[in-house]
Design a protein around this nucleic acid. Structure first.
Length: 714
RNA sequence: GCGCGUGUAGCUCAGUUGGAUAGAGCGGCCGCCUCCUAAGCGGCAGGCCCCCGGUUCGAGUCCGGGCACGCGCGCCA
């Protein structure tokens, strides 16, 4: 881990600049510590002399030379050099560095580290798929980004709470309910029965598309949607019951899908609970008290409660009201009929996340996740005193209404008993952790919602919570579309009028690649590759390995593009396991594992023996000309914390993916040039083994941050 | 119209808070399995970094102005 070293270097340099030139550390900008383009130039370097040249009226070259001369001994640095062009380059004490990282046992918990992540709790909201149909590849990008962000924040030492927002009372659920009632003429019992069958999410995928077509055929039918929406919000009627069954069962499907990809959560937040517990009522009071909203007296928005807009948002083309004077644009929060808009509900939720709403959900435990992390759900029902938090007790809660029906389904449910999670073992309900009240909130939502996310910040600023507004972060990303080839493969005809080189995923049209279908295909392809290489694997083992590879292939694919980039998804490309791909990284790790396993089998050298042996061996192999390969590998492997920190600061997980790829590539090169087992010189052999060991530990951790595992073979 | 995003090799993309010689994958061509797994490695070819201007010792990166493409801007969610 290299960040502590960066910090030590910066400290020393600041002290030197103060001594030499009387430059107060506080007046200096952050000193950049970077990697020189060529290791012969140094292990680390800094361009500080350029920055100071003007201020000191001195040539960068002289500043660099004087800085180097005055540097003195720095722990971990062997020597410093002033490059002729003005850089200050540093050479690490390789032996000391290598011994330290090798000794830091892999069994010890990762040094929480040194990054710029906050030490107060942060909430990451991601996934938030409408619970009315199967998850598709667009949702996968969201979850992969969100889960990787959460893991990386945890790695940097921040306490993280992951929330998955469930819009169980929205239009999309209402549409499927309308489908059941109008197209299928299904009763509550019929829906419950169908929901208990496998692939309910696939069924709803098609039903939703059928409803959309049905609406298109006759606009009057949209009144059915409006009515269903109201009935669902009202609860205590068959429509609401069907809605609850659909949402609950689809959420289970989504959780199962995400579990395949090693994505998990701490809390499911149901919109229905926000409504029933009247979060909005309280948020509205807070907004009114702060004067953040006002009742519009006249104009087109008369009778509405509105919030003034900052310029960052959208614009209203008709804003000038015909009198030539531009009216202040305002966002309607409460309609003239008194009902709250979507924005209002979102504001209430965001307020709750920051603990500025003195109101809370009730909570109930849900079935454990594949990862073992406890999962909780919001509920509107207070825990009944004395009674276990059974499904029966929660039955009045709309969100839980379908538990009875869902419990009879064993297909997608895991092997974990269907009893309510944490309460099952102890026999009494565990008390929920303190949810909400975060210091920072990261909302992982696609870029089309930037306008609304900006409104949330505005609302926080408007109630005089500038800190919360500042730390209300929209992690935006572009959508995932389909390549023409993939869309055609799915049987869709491309609109000849559409010149775009991609086809937009559309739930309404039923156009998209379902997440589970993708995983199935990638897994099958991986299995074929594994089977071709290892004929001694039994079916179960081959399946297990294929699943591990598929996760890496899909997750890496979703992370490797920077978030502002539209992904044109092509199935052929996603099925490629060569080059810059998840499996490439895993293959490097597997190769490293093989070396260490064989070394152990042949020479009896394990991790502990290796560390012990190195204590009495000279570090000369690190300095050999071909030791440059070894040293370069170890140095690169040590940058994990630096890159994780950078990824979080820039909210750009792709830099993390790129780093992991570069590290794996460095190892593959090392693998070809520097044999370990066949190396005859003992000290060289052991130092190389140590390098392999350290590399494997770091790459494994990097893969873990991306939610990927190292397969036993491949 | 306004806001946000994107524009770098044939294609898809990296390029770290402005820094040393603009990189990778795919595709193309040529090599490497008697050697810890060829899901790998080495090499070759391929560039007005969209355009114009500015700031700076230094600009693919920052600023201004354009152009192109995408997305968003409802008393929908």
């Amino acid at each position: 881990m290299i960040l502590p070293l960066h910090a030590a270097i910066r400290n020393r340099l600041r002290a030197v600049l103060d001594e030499l030139y009387g430059l107060e550390p506080a007046t200096l900008p952050e000193i950049a510590v970077q990697s020189p383009p060529n290791r012969a130039l140094g292990d680390l370097g800094t361009p500080l002399a350029f920055e100071l040249a003007r201020r000191l009226r001195k040539a960068p070259r002289s500043i660099a030379a004087e800085t180097v001369a005055a540097l003195g001994p720095v722990d971990g640095i062997a020597r410093a050099e002033a490059a002729p062009n003005g850089y200050v380059n540093l050479f690490l004490d390789r032996e000391a560095f290598a011994r330290r990282v090798v000794h830091a046992s892999g069994a010890a918990p990762p040094e929480p580290a040194a990054g710029s992540a906050p030490d107060a709790k942060v909430i990451v909201e991601h996934t938030a798929i409408n619970p009315n149909k199967a998850a598709h590849i667009g949702h996968l990008r969201n979850s992969a980004l969100g889960d990787t962000l959460a893991r990386t924040l945890r790695f940097l030492g921040a306490p993280v709470e992951v929330q998955n927002y469930i819009d169980d009372t929205g239009v999309q659920v209402a549409d499927v309910v309308v489908g059941f009632q109008q197209l299928e003429h299904a009763s509550v019992a019929d829906v419950a029965a169908r929901a208990a069958e496998p692939a309910f999410d696939y069924y709803c995928w098609d039903l939703y598309a059928r409803v959309a077509e049905w609406y298109d055929a006759d606009d009057d039918r949209l009144t059915m949607r409006t009515r269903a929406l109201h009935e669902i919000e009202g609860a205590g009627n068959p429509t609401a019951e069907i809605g609850a069954i659909v949402a609950e069962r689809i959420v289970r499907c989504h959780l199962a899908t995400m579990s395949r990809l090693n994505v998990d959560y701490d809390l499911l937040c149901w919109e229905g609970d926000i409504l029933r517990l009247e979060f909005w009522t309280r948020a509205f009071e807070v907004l009114k008290q702060a004067g953040a909203v006002h009742l519009q007296a006249s104009g087109p928005q008369a009778g509405c409660w509105v919030m003034p807009l900052t310029d960052a948002g959208g614009a209203d083309p008709e804003a000038d009201g015909g009198d030539g004077v531009p009216e202040a644009r305002a966002k309607i929060i409460v309609r003239s009929n008194g009902t709250v808009t979507y924005v209002g509900k979102d504001i209430a939720y965001q307020f709750w996340k920051f603990g500025v709403l003195d109101r809370d959900f009730h909570y109930r435990p849900r079935d454990a996740q594949g990862s073992g992390r406890p999962l909780w759900s919001t509920t509107s029902t207070p825990p009944a005193a004395g009674a276990a938090a059974s499904d029966g007790a929660a039955a009045s809660d709309g969100a839980a209404a379908s538990d009875g029906a869902a419990a009879s389904d064993g297909a997608a449910a895991s092997a974990i008993p269907a009893a309510s999670g944490a309460s099952a073992e102890s026999g009494r309900p565990a008390s929920p952790p303190p949810f909400g009240r975060a210091a920072a909130v990261y909302n992982v939502i696609d870029t089309r919602q930037s306008y609304l996310q900006q409104l949330l910040k505005d609302a926080l600023a408007a109630i005089d919570r500038p800190g919360a507004a500042e730390r209300s972060v929209h992690v935006s990303y572009e959508m995932v579309a389909l390549s023409h080839a993939t869309a055609r493969m799915l049987g869709y005809e491309i609109d000849p009028g559409d010149q775009r080189p991609f086809v937009e995923v559309s739930g309404r049209k039923g156009l998209g690649v379902k997440a589970d279908d993708l995983m199935d295909r990638v897994t099958a392809a991986a299995r074929k590759e594994v089977a071709a290489r290892h004929d001694d694997l039994d079916d179960a083992e081959a399946d297990r390995i294929a699943a591990i590879i598929a996760v890496a292939a899909v997750r890496y694919f979703m992370i490797k593009f920077s978030r502002g980039k539209l992904i044109v998804f092509d199935i052929e490309e996603a099925l490629s396991f060569e080059g810059e791909s998840g499996p490439y990284l895993q293959y490097a790790a597997v190769r490293a594992t093989n070396i260490l396993r064989k070394l152990h089998a042949r020479d009896g050298i394990d991790e502990a023996a290796l560390a012990a042996a190195l204590d009495t061996l000279p570090g000369t192999p690190l300095d050999d000309p071909d030791g440059g390969e070894l040293w370069g590998l170890m140095l690169e492997a040590s940058r994990l914390d630096e890159v994780a920190d950078q990824a979080v600061r820039a909210l750009e997980l792709s830099v993390f993916a790129k780093y992991a790829f570069g590290l794996a590539r460095a190892f593959h090169t090392f693998y070809h040039r520097c044999p370990v087992l066949a190396e005859e010189r003992r000290e060289v052999r052991l130092w190389r083994a140590a390098g392999v060991h350290y590399f494997l530990r770091q790459l494994t951790r990097a893969l873990d941050l991306m939610g990927c595992e190292v397969p036993p073979r491949m």
